[in-house]
Design a protein around this nucleic acid. Structure first.
Lengths: 199, 199
DNA sequence: CTTCTTGCCTAAAGCTATTAGGCAAGTGCA
DNA sequence: TGCACTTGCCTAATAGCTTTAGGCAAGAAG
C-alpha cells in the first residue's frame, strides 16, 4: 500500500516555482507543495531541508533562467539594441513569471549569492556598457543605475503602479530605454569637486 | 485583577512600525505585537481587524511619514536641489526605517491606495519636474522613471546589493543624481516614428 | 449604588513548520 | 531465490501564528 510519487529536490523546486507564479512567492509553502503532489507534508523534508531551503532553490532557479534568457538576448547585439534586449528580458520574465521574479529578489546569504547566476547576470550588464564609452568608476555607477531602474520599474509595474493611467506602461518603457541610451552615450562628467578652494 | 494596558489602534500601528524596523516587516505578527505589550493575542483583535489590517495600517503610516518628509525637504527648493532632496528622503527613510519602508511597498487595494499619502508623494514627484522643461507625456514617463530608480536603488541597497564593493554606495548615489539631473535637462525627443514612410 | 460599556481574558479550532520514528517496496548481493 | 539494506513516504507529535466566541471585572453613567 505504499505509493511512491517520485519526489526529488528538482521536481519540488520546479513545482515550487510554478506554484509561486500561480499564487505568489510568499504563498509558497511546504504544505501547499505537498498538497500539489498529493503527499503528506513530512515527506518533503527528505528532499528539502526546510521552507527557507525550498525558497532559496526557487530563487536560484529563477536567477538561472533569467541569466540564460539574458545571454540569449544579448547574443549578437550591442549598444542600444543590447540594452533594450536585456531590459526586456527583465520585464518579460517578470510578467511571465511574477512568482519566480519575486523569488529572484530573495535575499541570499553572501556565499549562495556569489555562487548563483546573479553574478553572470551582473557581468552581462557590464558587457552591455562596453558599447558605451564609460570607464571606471562610472561604469559601476551605470551598472548600479541600470539595475535599479530595471528592477524598480518592473517591480512597480508588477504591483500595479502603472496600470489604469495614461500613457500606457509600454510607452513609458520604450521612452525610458531611449532616455537611458541617451544618458549612457552622454554620461556627465563629475561636477567640480572643490579641493583646495580659495574663496 | 484586570489590568488595562491602554491598547489603541494607533498605539498598535506605531508599535508595529517599530517592530517592523527591528525584525523586518514580514516578521511583524499579531503574536509578536501582543508579546510586546505583554498582552494576550486575542486582545489585539478588538483594535485591529486582522493581520492584514495591521500591516496595511503600518504601510499607511509609512507612506504618511515619507510624504511628510518629502514635503519638508522640497520646501524652498527647485531643480536639481529639489531632485536630490527628494531622492535623499527616499534613501534616508529606508535606511532609518527599513521595516517601514518595506511596509510602504505593500500592495494596497486601489481604494486604499487612492486615499493614502502615496498620491501626495506622487504629486511631489511631478512638482519636482516643473523645474525641468518637460511636457506631457514625457513628464509622466519621467515621473515613472524617477520612481523606478529611487525605489530600485534603495531596495537593492537595502538588500545588501552594493555593500562590500567599490566604489561605495554613496558615491554612486551622488553620481546617479547628477546623471538624472542631466537627463532631465536634456530629455531626448521621441525617435522618428515612421508613419507613412515611403522607402 | 446599580447598570452598562468596554478592555482584556480563556478557550478552541485550523493552518503551517519541523522532527522522530516506522513500515513496506524495491535493490543488491549471495 | 532469498535475505539484508536502503529509501521513500507515512503516522505522530510538538510548537507557533491566526482568528472567532464568549466571559468577567473595572470603570463610567445615570
Amino acid at each position: 500500500m505504499t505509493r511512491r510519487v517520485g519526489l526529488t529536490t528538482e521536481r519540488l523546486t520546479q513545482a515550487g516555482a510554478e506554484l509561486a507564479d500561480e499564487v505568489g512567492f510568499d504563498q509558497v509553502t511546504v504544505s501547499a507543495l505537498a498538497r500539489r503532489f498529493d503527499v503528506k507534508v513530512a515527506s518533503l523534508y527528505s528532499h528539502v531541508k526546510n521552507s527557507q531551503d525550498l525558497k532559496t532553490r526557487i530563487a536560484l532557479l529563477a536567477l538561472e533562467e533569467m541569466a540564460d534568457r539574458a545571454a540569449a538576448a544579448l547574443a549578437g547585439r550591442a549598444g542600444k539594441d543590447a540594452l533594450a534586449a536585456f531590459a526586456n528580458v527583465y520585464r518579460d520574465y517578470a510578467r511571465e513569471h511574477p512568482g519566480r521574479y519575486a523569488a529572484a529578489r530573495l535575499r541570499l546569504d553572501p556565499e549562495t549569492a556569489a555562487a548563483s547566476a546573479g553574478v553572470r547576470h551582473a557581468q552581462m550588464t557590464r558587457a552591455i556598457l562596453r558599447g558605451y564609452d564609460l570607464t571606471e568608476p562610472d561604469q559601476t555607477h551605470a551598472v548600479r543605475m541600470l539595475g535599479s531602474v530595471f528592477h524598480g520599474y518592473v517591480s512597480l509595474e508588477l504591483s500595479g503602479g502603472f496600470s489604469h493611467s495614461a500613457p500606457d506602461s509600454q510607452e513609458t518603457w520604450t521612452r525610458m530605454l531611449d532616455a537611458l541610451d541617451a544618458l549612457l552615450r552622454n554620461w556627465p562628467a563629475p561636477p567640480n569637486t572643490p579641493l583646495t578652494h580659495t574663496g
